[in-house]
Write a protein that binds this DNA or RNA. Structure first.
Length: 963
RNA sequence: GCGGGAGUGGUGUAACGGCAGCCACGCCAGACUUAGGAUCUGGUGCCUUCGGGCGUGCGGGUUCGAAUCCCGCCUCCCGCACCA
């Protein structure tokens, strides 16, 4: 680490530091030497109960297991800044503490290495993404090692390793080979579906059998179609975000609010394309319900609940000519107030319903200026396709739409309601059609206003209601026909009554819908997992046999998909793999003789590799199976009846609150249903670490200036003598406020850096970075060093023949108690505060040179070892400790020393503290009161007053309530 | 708009409903010093007539007692947002 010499503030620059002071230079020397020893001795090799990684299991066999994990990094070329290690250090301190405290701890790390940045770089440079990715992995791995983390290096892998993505492909085939049994509410192998269809014990699910003929009468190709339509991974012609400028489809999350690609800022179009989908919606209920069984933060659970977006209501059918329009509503109670019907522009019935001509006297606002309804519809649909889904969801936009020239019949009162298409109705939610109730819905009210449609109120608004749509509570009005009346009922009762009535009449039924959509699983990219799928001569997708996995990513000349003109909405995707013509065509014998097949040329999305990596840590070298079931039971299995099982502590950023965590939970549940894992959830406990932010400064031209050169004077921030503006936010090179762990390690050592990061707040909390405060952590470690080592001679100060005095024992055991609490609850700042108190006590009690009792010094070293592991090892070894401190037992507080003999108790008069008295710790209420009354100041306060009540809490306080 | 969370010294933070501000940074003073950017010691919420008074975003409430619980505001952060 050559940085030391270059840094102006190196603490070891002064001339006369004692020769054996814990300086940054010494810290680095110690750190590098222990990091080598850990590697040489395999200190952090975690034994499995069985298999190739089981050596040494006997020494941990009686321990409980603890599986701690970080969200693995994407190895970008930018390297780590000081914000990145926060979570990694949190799991590291925790895993070191748990190991010392008697757990068999698994703390692995890997790399999420498929993805766009590497592919973009490859497109620009022509260099294979694997080359740059592996170089980045090597760089980050070096940075992590230098932090002193206790990862089991034997378990490290990257998602791009063929030995890993072989099993990603295998899992895809499991999902492809499964269907969701709605009755059993779980996935089952597809062969069981075929058997049940053949035996007649099951009918094809709704929508899976286009011909409508009985299963037994279908030919083989029709049967194949029915079966394929049941699969959990399926091909579907669905509206997707097509970005011609990038040549790829994008997920909704990759499209900006103004309908452009997040990357590159190209226009994005909604259009139907055949894509791989995953039926995550089948799991919506279980994904929602099982949140209650997880130890995750409420806010995170709430984000997942919102994303799943379950809402209950009713489907209602409105007759329209020979067709029926099915709408979804959460307010069937307001059905009498429906005054028109709206379909999404892409609704499949639009074509069939559209009238030939406008009736006489059609309101010009309804026609969109077109001569015929068909023309109006065509033009409106064309406009809508140019808008992305997100763009259409801009609630502030004025309502637009056109009339189809027809009406539909309201089943409750026979009223004929005009049928519109409008883009404020979304095709993917509910049934893609609504009944519009302007009296009780704000959006419908806006549309009705713009189109001159009537408003009928069915909920009585309060007297002071100012108009518009009334969405509050109130008794039903205007809601009766010859058979049923809702008038006077409240919302819940009205919903129950009208739903029952609709069911009776065959006009509707209660239903539940979700915002969650099926997962678009294919991408037109190079740097991803190839699908283990080939197509036969009928274009039917067929699984590549497991024995032929992995399907290796082929070499190509050009890593980019074919791109098109920005606005060429009708272009079609051509993935990079489609140009690897030697690869795309393959001859296989799938049991019916050698035949020619065509390979799938899409690749999987970046999420695939991160959906199951936690399982692979259990034995990444296993070439026979995804994971040994025995290992999965040991590390992940449920601990008790009702426990979901899963990783014991998963730490990562809140940016993955929804997608990664939802996708991983979904895959895990499929694997559970198919019998591959015993756990029901992947992550039993999850913590979102906070972010580290920093100040950035801009000069009068708005350019960033180096934050390190800015000085504060009289509340003003100056760079080069000129005032600059300060903003608070991200750390980054372009913001000129980048601080790297390497710089900090160079200036102070890894242990100081670790202690500083952990000292600034609870793990979950975001906090600012402040380089000038790091020195406080260094001072602490220097004082701890001084407790053990004589700075002048280098000799160990502590002595066997010195007995600790009582105050020292109390300070020690109170510290042990507090530090344990801090480590257990991930409030490392608390642990550090208690360690500091103990250190300060020892410094004062024993001065700079008198010997510290060995037992106390040892315990102090053990307390700090999880936070500052190199210092811990060094002092432990100098004190003559056996083996690595990483495996030494963590101290336990003796309750005897946690209680004082005498305690100071506050005495209040009317809730205000007026004095303090010393009393025996076990003094009862009467003794407390007597001691308080004997106090001069209190006596003065009570003199002449009437004491109406006395509250005495032993060990805490006395409160006199006086008149 | 809906949902979630948070407001405590100059700063990061700490306080089972029981003495507000532990521990740090910064700042002030002192010691050791040629020197201090090292180290050590002490001080540091605000006001004060030195008795004390006031203090946890604002206003109410519950309680003997509220930073903590309840109600209503204000501000900030995060998520969702034409989801019928």
């Amino acid at each position: 680490m050559s940085q030391t010499a270059d840094l102006p503030h190196g603490a070891d620059q002064a001339g006369d530091v004692p020769p054996h002071r814990y300086t940054p230079a010494l810290a680095q020397q110690i750190e590098l030497s222990w990091q080598d020893r850990w590697e040489d001795e395999g200190t952090f090799h975690t034994p499995n109960p069985t298999g190739r990684l089981s050596a040494g299991f006997e020494r941990v066999a009686d321990r409980p297991k603890f599986f701690a994990m970080d969200m693995f990094p994407y190895p970008s070329g930018a390297g780590l800044h000081v914000g990145h290690p926060l979570g990694y250090l949190g799991t590291d301190v925790t895993s070191r503490f748990r190991r010392m405290d008697g757990d068999n701890v698994l703390h692995p790390m890997g790399y999420d290495a498929f993805g766009l940045p590497a592919e973009q770089f490859a497109v620009q440079t022509g260099q294979h993404p694997r080359v740059t990715t592996e170089a980045n992995i090597a760089a980050i791995s070096t940075q992590l090692r230098r932090l002193g983390v206790d990862h089991d290096q034997r378990r490290t892998f990257a998602t791009i390793d063929p030995g890993y993505y072989k099993w990603t492909q295998w899992i895809f085939l499991q999902i492809f080979g499964a269907w969701f049994d709605e009755d059993a509410n779980r996935a089952r192998p597809i062969e069981e579906l075929v058997a049940e269809l053949d035996s007649g014990s099951r009918e094809p699910a709704a929508g899976t059998n286009p011909s409508g003929r009985p299963w037994a009468e279908l030919d083989q190709r029709e049967k194949n179609g029915v079966v394929d339509a049941h699969r959990l991974a399926y091909l579907n012609e669905a509206p997707v975000n097509w970005c011609p400028g990038l040549g790829t489809v994008l997920s909704n999350e990759e499209v900006t609010a103004d309908g452009r690609s997040e990357r590159g800022n190209f226009p994005v179009f909604r259009r139907p394309l055949k894509q791989w989908m995953m039926r995550i919606t089948s799991y919506a209920d279980r994904l929602l319900a099982d949140l209650d069984r997880l130890d995750w933060s409420d806010s995170l659970k709430q984000m997942q609940r919102n994303w799943i977006g379950r809402s209950t209501g009713a489907k209602v059918r409105f007759a329209c000519g020979s067709e029926a329009i099915e709408v979804f509503t959460t307010r069937p109670d307001t059905l009498f107030g429906a005054t028109y019907v709206v379909l999404a522009p892409e609704h499949p019935l639009v074509g069939a319903l559209t009238a030939d001509v406008w009736p006489d006297g059609t309101d010009p606002r309804w026609t969109g200026g077109a001569a015929t309804p068909a023309e109006a519809v065509r033009e409106y649909q064309r406009q809508a396709s140019r808008r992305s889904e997100l763009d259409r969801q801009d609630a502030g936009r004025d309502k637009t739409g056109v009339w189809l020239g027809v009406t539909a019949t309201n089943p409750v009162n026979g009223r004929e309601l005009p049928v519109f298409i409008a883009d404020y109705v979304l095709t993917g939610y509910g049934t893609g059609a609504i009944m519009a109730v302007p009296g009780e819905d704000t959006r419908d009210f806006d549309f009705a206003g713009a189109f001159g449609l009537p408003v009928v109120r069915t909920v009585q608004p309060p007297a002071d209601f100012e108009g518009g749509a009334y969405t509050g509570a109130g008794p039903m009005i205007n809601s009766s026909n010859g058979e049923i009346s809702l008038d006077g009922l409240d919302k819940a009762e009205a919903i129950a009554r009208i739903t029952a009535w609709l069911v009776e009449r065959g006009a509707g039924e209660a239903t539940t819908t979700y915002k969650l959509r099926d997962w678009l699983f294919s991408r037109q990219r190079y740097w991803g997992e190839p699908f283990p799928i080939v197509y036969d001569e009928h274009d039917r997708p067929v699984a590549v046999p497991t024995s032929m996995l992995p399907v290796l990513l082929p070499e190509v000349d050009d890593y980019s998909p074919k791109t098109f003109a920005d606005d060429d909405a009708d272009s079609a995707p051509e993935p990079p793999l489609s140009r690897a013509t030697e690869w795309t065509t393959v001859t296989l014998d799938l049991g019916d003789g050698p035949k020619e097949y065509r390979r799938e040329t899409n690749t999987m999305p970046n999420w695939a590799g991160s959906c199951w990596y936690y399982l692979r840590y259990l034995d990444p070298g296993d070439d026979e199976r995804m994971v040994d079931p025995e290992l999965e039971r040991y590390w992940m299995g449920p601990r008790s009846v009702g426990d979901t099982g899963g990783v014991d502590l998963y730490v990562g950023g809140v940016e993955h609150a929804v997608l990664h965590l939802l996708y991983a939970r979904f895959w895990h549940k499929v694997l559970h249903d198919l019998g591959h894992v015993s756990s029901e959830e992947p992550f039993r406990r999850l913590v979102n670490q906070g972010y580290i932010s920093a100040y950035a400064y801009t000069d009068e031209r708005g350019f960033y200036v180096p934050a390190a050169e800015v000085v504060e004077r009289d509340g003003q921030f100056l760079h080069d003598g000129k005032p600059v503006d300060r903003e608070y936010g991200k750390i980054g090179k372009s913001l000129k406020n980048m601080v790297t762990p390497d710089e900090m390690i160079g200036a102070y050592g890894a242990d100081t850096f670790r202690v500083y990061e952990m000292s600034t707040g609870p793990l979950e909390q975001s906090r600012p970075w402040e380089t000038k405060a790091v020195v406080g952590s260094q001072r602490l470690l220097q004082r701890i060093w001084r407790v053990v080592v004589d700075e002048q001679t280098g000799a160990v100060r502590s002595a066997d023949d010195v007995e600790p005095a009582e105050p020292t024992l109390r300070a020690l055991h109170q510290a042990i108690d507090g530090v344990r609490d801090g480590y257990t609850t991930l409030r490392f700042n608390i642990a550090i505060a208690r360690i500091t108190e103990l250190t300060n006590h020892l410094t004062q009690a024993y001065g700079a040179s008198s010997p510290v009792p060995r037992a106390v010094a040892e315990q102090l070293v053990l307390l700090v070892a999880p936070l500052a592991p190199h210092l811990g090892e060094e002092l432990w070894s100098r004190l003559g400790g056996e083996g690595s401190v990483a495996w030494a037992p963590f101290p336990t507080a003796d309750p005897r020393w946690l209680v004082e003999d005498t305690v100071q108790v506050a005495v209040q008069v009317n809730g205000k503290v007026r004095s303090q008295v010393m009393v025996p710790a076990d003094a009862d209420a009467a003794a407390l009161e007597a001691a308080a009354r004997a106090d001069e100041k209190i006596a003065a306060h009570l003199d002449g007053a009437t004491v109406r009540r006395v509250i005495a809490v032993p060990g805490r306080l006395v409160n006199f309530v006086v008149a």
